[in-house]
Design a binder for these strands. Structure first.
Lengths: 333, 333
DNA sequence: TTGAAAGCGGTACCAG
DNA sequence: CTGGTACCGCTTTCAA
């Protein structure tokens, strides 16, 4: 590991000049520039990030905050983020927070330009106070998968997604339709599931259908709780002929429960999910697709731009679409 | 953001003493210690990582190198890693490398104690030269999912996994058995798929079965290539009655292809995978389970220990087990 | 256009 | 047990 002064010596200049050249500042003679570049090349010089960070007071890392980063949808977003970030030379520091208190603690810690150059929140909505703090210390925030006023973000129209799902089921002839989604008093105050449900119910209402309360199962996120919720639905006197799950992971739990009960899909039950994670194809799951990887890539793009220039308050809406596979069909007659 | 000298001033001591207290060094009077701690507490002091790194010449971050970090098996390992690492205060810096050249470049870059305190390789095997370099610069390497001599690592017995799969299929009565796995001239020189196949064929040989070359499909990793490979298998004059896929992701491609062709699982075709990723339950996939999340957690543990003490050259073997679900059954009669 | 020097915020060695 | 001080490697005025 060579240092800047070694490069300087070799090029016959001062460290200050090397710094200028390497940071692309003006006011350097071309001849000097090329000599420095050559010396740096020959020494295989790489600047010390720690020293740069300390001297500049600003880190070249992007902090990524996520909840359940290993769950497929988040992982796919992360993949897009990472790929787009890699060429930039910024380090991607991952914080996978499991609780609301951790989330707060980490976010507080990251409000420091010497710690991270920018922070990307995945499916996490910052509070106005948090936004104010970051604004104050000068660390840009970008949000992936949530629309937050004044912040760079990517999002989808969850209500539209709920409508797409409802129309698809209605079009197939279903009338007994249930919903499985996230509990809404969750500590992350994340409204995607609720938005999808509300719009979903809305469209059902248009068809003079009404979601009976026992047809609405709000459970913790994850496959198993959704599976149990589906089991409860199956045990009803009048079980539904179709289930809309607020995420593909939950839909996979429904599929599992259906299998346990010997229900044939889609003959006995139609299932529609949300996200279109990679495994949904293998599962044959009909779903409302959102561009997961792309959302991460946009997040990275916004993050890099926020560092270079200023945050622009850009809100990027990503498209939703219905992907029909074999988990949906007409209701049993 | 307060600095160490502010804490020092408030406690009426020197910065050196604050440093000692905060780093838990001995030779500090109890009264002094508590005064410093109080001052730090009151100021909400957090040491600057950049400054610490620079002064110590050693970073408090763990660099994680992975290929296809968004694929379910890797993402689950990452989840375990992250969870176990979080309380340690080490930053997790993720490098998701897509090519062999990137892999080399990143690894070279990480061979620097000021860059990362330790590096964790997920399903990536370092070359002897690379190991030597890291050894020399004093950055410990730990490997998750590969057995590497002299290195701390976690691994599974892939051959045993291949045997488990073969025996399961044989026990069900299958005789026409095909294999779908990774191409073996892949740029990451990763042998898991090959090991599984070799042992698999071995057991078949015991039953005087022999994998015809057209029954062995080696394709790039991912769902789609596996799907196409399965389609080729189905198009054979004598299509197999069972397929062993070297990973669950590939198995999901097989399931998809079977569906496309109108094959009923497991009546017309049995499928067995490897990994037991989360979505395998929903897919009803029989598989050879390996503890993915746990492997990541162990990786983190080994990494932390390698920083604290020295790398111990610990090789942790994780257990494999057959998980029977609905994708396997007797062959069609 | 270039260099000298003063930090950035800690750590660690050496005296006392 | 504690303080002074010399760096760690780079950036950034300020002068020349």
């Amino acid at each position: 590991m060579s240092t800047i002064s070694e490069v300087a010596k070799r090029a016959g200049v001062s460290a200050a000049t090397v710094s200028r050249v390497l940071n692309g500042k003006r006011h350097v003679a071309d001849s000097t520039r090329s000599r420095v570049l050559l010396a740096a090349e020959e020494l295989g010089y790489t600047p010390s990030r720690a020293a740069q960070t300390l001297a500049r007071g600003r880190a070249t890392t992007v902090g990524v905050l996520a909840h359940m980063a290993s769950s497929p949808s988040v992982a796919e977003r992360l993949g897009g983020l990472s790929a787009r970030l890699a060429p930039s030379g910024n380090d991607l520091v991952l914080f996978d927070v499991e609780s609301a208190s951790r989330r707060r603690a980490v976010l507080r810690e990251l409000a420091d330009p010497e710690r991270v150059g920018v922070v990307v929140l995945i499916s996490i909505r910052p509070t106005p106070e948090e936004i104010a703090i970051f604004q104050e210390v000068g660390v840009p925030i970008v949000v992936v998968d949530a629309r937050v006023p004044d912040l760079d973000c990517t999002y989808v129209d969850n209500m539209e997604g709920g409508r797409l799902a409802a129309r698809a089921l209605l079009a197939s002839g279903h009338r007994e339709i249930a919903f499985i989604g996230d509990i809404e008093d969750n500590e992350f105050d994340f409204t995607a599931s609720r938005d999808r449900r509300v719009a979903f119910e809305d469209v059902l209402g248009t068809a003079s259908l009404q979601l009976d309360s026992e047809y609405v199962q709000l459970v913790p996120h994850g496959r198993s709780p959704a599976r149990r919720a589906a089991q409860r639905l199956f045990a009803l006197d009048a079980p539904p002929t179709a289930i809309f799950a607020a995420s593909d992971v939950q839909a996979s739990g429904v599929l599992e429960a259906a299998q346990d009960r010997g229900l044939e899909i889609p003959r006995d039950l139609s299932v529609i999910g949300f996200d279109d994670i990679q495994s949904s194809r293998g599962m044959g799951l009909t779903t409302i697709r959102q561009p997961l990887e792309e959302s991460g890539a946009y997040g990275a793009k916004l993050a890099l731009e926020a560092i270079e220039h200023q945050p622009m308050g850009l809100a990027i809406e990503l498209p939703l679409s219905l992907v029909s596979r074999r988990s949906t069909g007409p209701p049993p007659t």
